[in-house]
Nucleic acid binder design. Structure first.
Lengths: 211, 211
DNA sequence: GTGTGTGAATTACTTCACAGCC
DNA sequence: GGCTGTGAAGTAATTCACACAC
């Protein structure tokens, strides 16, 4: 596994999702064409992508679903659980906390932070849903708390105005990966990986294609 | 404006966002280097991107902020308001409804749909916030309602199990662009543009880079 | 025969570097 | 002098096409 292209990395989680569905449907083996239809590309792309991870298939047969899933999970670092904190507990933070897909994919929400003193100290419950067992923390000791909790990834959902400042504190807390929902580009040291999520950007791209 | 690369299109909304901030700071003119720092690329990239839209700058000077914003808005089709409907009014749908960034960028939420009879007919209010003036519609007449409302883009936030079926009805309602939050790939006719948003995919990509 | 793995060919995107205009 | 616009050069990603393993 010399060097895997970025675009291939972006597709690996999608392969994983499709493989999960294939397995749930009772499939034990898939070939590149079947997979390509599920993910919406072509067979050559699938074979090339997977070949970066090693010789995972069997010629004349295809790919064993279980072992392929294990391989991809390994490459993505999902074999051990990742520790995630949500920083900014507004509507969006709350809706992310309630998303079941995280736990299923090995992401454990281990901390929730909000600067609002009215929220801090209260239990972070999903209304009408199971209690999470988590308490919303104030941001007074954000750096120390993140370090103590051993957080790998922060989901940042603060207002844009404070996002840069908070992100710097997150980085100071030893966190090296941030999923940023605040609509601005964070300026952080190169060793901190940032991925931007902005629904309005996606809408604008769709708008372009409408002509 | 012959053919604009996809990647350039993806960056246009980001330029727009940075230009808005620049203008709010009182800047009337920016050059490619300044812009590149704001968006996090390099000056050559900025010039190349913008050159696809026409000769928008002035040599020796830079780009006029206002007219550049107008140009990009035009290309993205944001000069007239886009009509958006949210289909699936759960936690996520509700949190998207409350996002101020939509209206600011010319996206009007004109309809909200949910299959749950307990929600249908009730006002779609943001708890403790301004009323939206919208009523949650049942999905009984989804196709007709979408057509009647003149919806350009649907934000799909239904559970994965029904997403494909609902998406087909959305397409049948004449909608040609879907922002899909359900974690599966929709199979739709080629004339319907789909953009996937999946936070767990983004987390998995970050997880890879953690090593 | 069937379907993978992969060099080679193609296509797409980015960066360079400089002519041209203000 | 300063900065854009753009061909040309350089990289990266995708697709082709076929040898090879089962």
């Amino acid at each position: 596994m010399e060097h895997v292209p970025d675009q291939t990395i972006n597709r690996l989680p999608v392969y994983l999702r499709c493989l999960t569905r294939a397995r749930d449907q009772g499939l034990r083996v898939v070939n590149s064409l079947q997979l390509s239809i599920m993910v919406g590309t072509n067979a050559a792309q699938v074979r090339k992508d997977l070949s970066y991870l090693g010789e995972l298939g069997t010629r004349g047969i295809g790919y064993d679903v279980d072992s392929l899933m294990a391989q991809i999970s390994g490459v993505l670092g999902l074999t051990e659980k990742r520790r995630v904190a949500i920083v900014g507990y507004g509507r969006l933070g709350g809706s992310l906390l309630g998303y079941k897909g995280f736990a299923e994919r090995g992401f454990d929400i281990v901390g929730i932070f909000d600067a609002d003193p009215a929220k801090a100290g209260r239990a972070a419950d999903l209304r009408g849903s199971v209690a999470t067992g988590l308490t919303v923390r104030s941001m007074d000791h954000l750096e120390d708390d993140l370090r103590e909790l051993g957080v790998d990834i922060v989901i940042l959902t603060t207002p844009a105005e404070v996002a840069q400042e908070v992100a710097e504190r997150v980085a100071a807390g030893g966190v090296r990966a941030i999923l940023n929902f605040a609509p601005l580009r964070l300026r952080l040291p190169d060793d901190v990986r940032v991925k931007e999520v902005d629904v309005s950007v996606d809408l604008q791209v769709l708008s372009f294609h409408l002509g």
